[in-house]
Amino acid sequence: MRNSLEIRNLSVERSNREIIKDLSLSLTEGNLVHLKGANGSGKTTFLRALAGLINPSQGGIFWNESNISENIFFQSILNYVSHNLGLADELTALENLSFLRSISRKTPNKTVEASLDIMNLKNFQDCRIALLSAGQKQRASLAQLLMFNCPLWLLDEPFNSLDAESCGVVESLIDDHMSNGGIAIVASHQKFQSSTAQHVVEL
């Protein structure tokens, strides 16, 4: 069966305000979505709802026809990289990622060292996150994408503070993911290259 993600009449409320209103979207393998919108338009809220962190006020999100709010294993099929990065400042990149890899219930893929190597962080893997530059932190966080084998990627501003070369690396990561039959939703205010067609969703 082909993986599918279906969003049916999704409405999400934040701080007593309806941020996402009646949004429907249907995606299958190989679909890439470029999520656009001004600051505060609800890109992050939308991704967090898709990750199952926020309960929708109306409508639902269905992975392979089953509602994600009733599926406790849903988290193991998705890889969400938030713009918050999610790495502890006091630990090194290697420690942070090894910790995640060892507790995670997602299917493992590359080793932590290999993932960091691909993100050009081999020489910095033993530096504490607090000492890394913004771009390096972003790359360390994106290394999560390589460590796990997840069919659904939710990326929140993955190109933030990256130089042209690293942007190219991330773009090729997304391309690989798409050609392997993955689904990706990328929130980004800037354009990015991809070999597959992008569905543009404007919030």
Partner: peptide
Amino acid sequence: STGALEVIVLSGV
């Protein structure tokens, strides 16, 4: 504040 809690929650543990 760093979002690490979110990542831990999403790891499925």
